[in-house]
Each structure stands twice: as structure tokens, then as C-alpha cells.
Design a protein around this nucleic acid. Structure first.
Lengths: 264, 264
DNA sequence: CCGGTTCGTGTCGCCCTGACACGAAGTGCT
DNA sequence: AGCACTTCGTGTCAGGGCGACACGAACCGG
């Protein structure tokens, strides 16, 4: 059990997922890969990763490495699996602790794209270095499985969101359409979300309510540990505008219930 | 990403679970611990483990170490988590890949019990070395969670078993009584088990049917990999006797349908 | 023959789910 | 102003799974 630093290399890699529009314009799962610049699998695409620093925990090491290689700060980070087959790296023995992470679309665009970093659709990857194809496949399975019983979907969204946006995340990950009515009831009855009281105006149709996640933003499942990570703030700058609900059926003196109700 | 053998120790430990009768005579979850004979946490109880050999995969390393320290060969072995906090070991930096394993009661009794190996009830453990208390807690959570949606219960049983035995396993792990009628239907409708055609005679009451697991014995979840481990054969030597069912309502020429039917 | 226990099947009500209908509330066009 | 169209949000209903419970079947011991 004591520390016997044998000749086994120890590294940390991360599978990063983000939602981006695919060829058909629909959101789907993408992940960034880096081109290898050293000799095992030189020039092949691989997961971002690097050796574990002596003064860092495994999770912190993954987080730092992500920032260095892709300049990404994920909203969700969880350990996936430890890969340690004898022949997974030619010549040397290498054990990789692999994490998987989720980032928001706005954050995803911050990736310093260059010759050596590129986004790929998660479903059609080239031949990767090491056993990274297998790893991505496993991480995808984990993402899709956990999406169905957990609340990780909001790691792809900002602080506030509509039910259509939340449903769109589920549909993109699970690759199948979901009934809006039933999806709404499931989310509401689960207690995972609560309405903010605001609606989105400026859309072309009936203004949807905005929701936030209830019970504190608990991101970054640290497995058996209790470490948490605060969620970064993010608004939805594009088209529509958030507005406090007018509540026309309640004449109570709401001190913040009028913004732009010049219709009717 | 290349192999850079830094000063970080790499070890493998395993949480081994078995069912044994507790003080009240009911089956409950126990696990074997070993007393440390080296200096970090000298004389404290700890999970069995050791360094990873250069020529072994992580799972093989865990399996070999189990055999050496406790002489146990588990029927189920799955990776649990990689623990790598900076301060989890005094003085040195240590990363542990932790596995969890299930063994059958008969196998459990083969443990070479001595001053340095002892069984403990999983619910009441002493202060263990390192962060092993936390690890066991997590492994217990994993066992109980996976018991409800998976087929791991049969790792505690032999090749054939009655539904009462299978239910007893679930009850011991989940620590709550289960309705025999509903439990039967769940198991039968899941397609996980199939009747062998035999019954157990010699009991005091109505002879129960014997079942086996269907779909090939798939033990040792290797995570993303596809490795499998064959299940060791084991009979139930104690009290009752297995008998091919008489099947009195079917006069078809079954070439193996008569053994001891001198009752009626 | 009878009481007691376990085995195995039957039944019933509740809740969750999927499928679908439909009013509500906006925009854009004529 | 009115109509078409879309999305939002609620209502309804049938089917299946699950928990709770009843009850006959089968065997033992006295």
C-alpha cells in the first residue's frame, strides 16, 4: 500500500461535451479533440489530457489541464473511469484517470480553435490515439444514461431557461423527440425546477415561462466526495428579452409588475 | 500524455462484500479487512490492496492481490473509483484505484483468518487507515444502488437457487423486507432467471423450485470493456437435496423425469 | 386428521407513462 | 379587423408496473 513510484505513467484525460448545431442545423453532441505533438500516436487526434501534478488532486488536475489545452472551464466535471490495460500505450505503461465534462454553448465557442484543437461530432469520430475511441463511446453512454435519471441537463444551459430549451437538450442528447406535455409534467413533478416568474417576450409565439433549477446549483458530481463547484452566471443575450410577468389577473400591488404592457 | 513516472504512488485496493449472519442470526453485509504492517497507519485496519504490477492490468492486479492477502477469488469484480486527493496519505502522494467485489458465503469462509485478517460488519467499522471509511461507504452505496436495477445478487449465490434465497440476498443488502409475491413476479418478468425444472426436497414445507440465471453468467462488469469471467461451479451441500421435478401432470416421455417419487 | 409454514397464483387500487386533444397567447399577412 | 399559423400550457384517457393483500397448494409434525 505505500507509495512505490513504479515505472507506470499516470495521466488525466477528459471527454468534453457541448451542444452545437450539426449539418441539419439541429443541436447535437460535439467534443473537442487535440492533435498530438509527441510520439506515441504523433499527429493523431486525442482527448485533452496530461500528467498529474504532485500538488493537485485528480479533479483539479483535469480542470487545470482543460484550461491550458482548450481554455475551457466546464460547468460539470465527473470522474468516468480509470483505464489501465497493459498494452493501451505502445512502449510505455500508462494509466489514465478519465473525466467527462459538460460546457455551455457560449463557453464552447471560446475554445481557441487552431490547427491543433478542433470540434468533432460525437457520433462520427476519426481513429483516435490510444483507446480513446472506446473511452468516448463509454462517456457517451454515461452521458445518455445519466441524462435520464439525473439533472445534468442544466449544465448545458444558463441560469434561466425555458422548458423548450431544456427539452431541446434532452432531445439532442438522447437523439429522439420528446412529448412537450409529458416532459413538462415530469420536470415539474420532479421538483428539480421552479419558475422564476418571468417570461420571454419578443418571440414569435406565446411567451414561455422561465425556470431555474431548484435546490441550489449542485454541479460537478465528485463521486463519493462532497466537493461542489459554483455555476458561472450567463444570460441569453440573443434575440428575445426577459420580462417580469405582468400577471393581468391579479390586481394586487406588485411593486415590480409593469414593464411594457402596451398591448390589448 | 506520455508516460512520465512522477513521484506519485499507484495502488489498487478492493472492497470485498459477503453475506454472513449477524448477531441476530440474519444475513447481513460483511467485509474483510487487513491489519497494516507498515508505517503509514501502522496496526490500523485497512482495505486489502497493493501496488500495481507493471505487467498487469488494473483489474488483474486487484484480483491477484485479493488472492495473496485474503485467498479469495471473487465472483464479481468491478472498478469503483480512483481516489487521488493530495492529502489522503501522510508524507507521500498516493493514488488508489479501488475495486469492489462480491464473494459467495462458502468462499468467504475460506479466508485465512488470523491476527491480520478479520471480517467486520459493513455497518459498524472501526477507524480505518487512509480514507478507507469513506471508500467503504461509497462502495456500500454502490452495492445497494446497483442491487435494485442489476443482476448482481446472484454473485452471492451458487449456480442454482430458490427464489427465497435470492430474495434473502436482496433483503440483506437493502435492509428491508420484500413481498415474496411481488418479488417473484419482478424476477420472472425481467427474464433474468429461468427455472431449472428441479425442486428442493427435504425441507419442512412446500418444496420450492430451483432457478438459474439466464442469458449466460455475465459476471465481473468491466466497465466499458468487454471482459468476462466464468462463474465457478458450486452446489448447495447442506440440508436439502435437489431433485428433478416429477411433473405429475405431463405423461410425456421425459428421459430424465424420475428420481424419487414415492409420495402421494 | 389437523395446525402451521412456506410456496406460488390471483386480484385490486394507485401512480407513472405515453399518446393525443384542445384552449391560450402570441406574430404576421391580407 | 380578421384569419392562419405556431408554440405554450392544461386536460384526458388507456396501459403497465408496483405495492398490498387474499388464498389455494404442498409439505411436515403431532
Amino acid at each position: 500500500m505505500p507509495a512505490a513510484a513504479s515505472g507506470i505513467g499516470l495521466a488525466v484525460s477528459t471527454v468534453i461535451f457541448a451542444l452545437r448545431p450539426n449539418d441539419a442545423g439541429e443541436p447535437s453532441v460535439w467534443l473537442p479533440l487535440v492533435r498530438r505533438i509527441r510520439d506515441p500516436y504523433l499527429d493523431r487526434w486525442a482527448l485533452p489530457g496530461g500528467p498529474v501534478a504532485l500538488s493537485e488532486s485528480l479533479g483539479a488536475s483535469a480542470r487545470r489541464n482543460l484550461l491550458e489545452t482548450t481554455s475551457l472551464e466546464p460547468t460539470y466535471l465527473e470522474q468516468l473511469y480509470a483505464f489501465g490495460d497493459v498494452d493501451r500505450s505502445p512502449d510505455s505503461r500508462l494509466v489514465s484517470i478519465v473525466y467527462w465534462a459538460l460546457v455551455r454553448p457560449e463557453e464552447a465557442e471560446r475554445v481557441s480553435l487552431g490547427e491543433n484543437v478542433r470540434w468533432f461530432p460525437a457520433d462520427e469520430l476519426p481513429d483516435l490515439a490510444f483507446d480513446h475511441n472506446l473511452i468516448v463511446e463509454y462517456a457517451l453512454w454515461r452521458l445518455r444514461t445519466k441524462m435520464e435519471y439525473s439533472r445534468i441537463a442544466h449544465a448545458f444551459l444558463g441560469a434561466q431557461f425555458t422548458l423548450a430549451e431544456l427539452r431541446s437538450v434532452h432531445e439532442a442528447v438522447l437523439r429522439k423527440p420528446l412529448d412537450p406535455a409529458n416532459f413538462r409534467r415530469q420536470m415539474e413533478s420532479s421538483g428539480a425546477i421552479e419558475p422564476t416568474g418571468d417570461v420571454v417576450v419578443g418571440g414569435r409565439h406565446r411567451p414561455p415561462k422561465l425556470y431555474r433549477y431548484a435546490g441550489g446549483v449542485e454541479l460537478a458530481d465528485a463521486g463519493p466526495l462532497t466537493a461542489r463547484v459554483v455555476a458561472a452566471t450567463a444570460q441569453h443575450p440573443p434575440t428575445p428579452v426577459t420580462v417580469t410577468a405582468p400577471d393581468p389577473a391579479d390586481p394586487s400591488p406588485d411593486p415590480a409588475a409593469h414593464a411594457q404592457e402596451d398591448h390589448r
